[in-house]
């Protein structure tokens, strides 16, 4: 009995100490973690629609349709929309966040989720680094700081400027060997985008 009491006491003390330490660490890191989360969200929105930053957003939920209206200035009419398009590709549902203006022209697109075949369909999120070992060494030796260039996934970058109403797989360069995944992205954007435009007008 005495032993049992000792076990309970020891475990209790160990847990108490652990809880106290973790509470301390959590209080210190929480504001930082939340700031990081907000930054990540803002970044995703900004990539889809640069105008959305600092402007009023309004979430619309209409049955299955769910999207954000972006208001610029104090207008009553939204200047654009941000939505998430989903469609089954080759082996997974591909989710794309898309921003478009009121006329349907795409301001940016970014794949949020996909689980396509590595090396084929998964290339829809591929980013080609332009930095080589040679250029990096050169840069290191010359000590001249070159401005960081932002590299974006090349597949979704080609959507910029296209119109959701008539964007088609034939207008863009599909990923080699992954026609089905490429098509799914394009079609999901066209379907969802047109649906929202129709609902708004």
């Amino acid at each position: 009995m005495n032993n049992l009491l000792r076990f309970v006491l020891v475990l209790f003390l160990v847990n108490l100490a652990a809880a106290a330490i973790l509470a301390g660490v959590y209080t210190v890191t929480r504001p930082k973690i939340e700031a990081q989360k907000k930054m990540a969200e803002a970044k995703a929105l900004k990539e889809a629609m640069p105008e959305s930053v600092g402007n009023r957003l309004e979430k619309v939920e209409d049955g299955d349709v769910e999207y954000w209206k972006v208001f610029k200035d104090e207008n009553y009419r939204p200047s654009g929309y941000v939505f998430i398009a989903k469609k089954y590709g080759y082996s997974s549902v591909i989710e794309t966040m898309v921003g478009m203006k009121r006329d349907g022209s795409i301001t940016g697109a970014r794949i949020l989720n996909q689980n396509e075949t590595p090396g084929l369909g998964a290339k829809i999120v591929e980013i080609l680094s332009d930095k080589t070992l040679k250029s990096a060494l050169k840069g290191l030796l010359s000590r001249k700081k070159e401005p960081e260039k932002k590299i974006l996934p090349y597949f979704t970058e080609q959507f910029k400027g296209a119109n959701v109403k008539n964007i088609d797989i034939s207008d863009i360069d599909a990923i080699t060997g992954a026609t089905i995944s490429s098509k799914a992205v394009v079609e999901s954007i066209r379907e969802k985008g047109s649906e929202i435009l129709n609902a708004e007008q």
Binding site: T117, P118, G119, L120, T176, G177
Partner: peptide
């Protein structure tokens, strides 16, 4: 097939 899927399926 896993390494170079593009070549193996063209």
């Amino acid at each position: 097939q896993i390494s170079w899927p593009v070549y193996m399926t063209t």
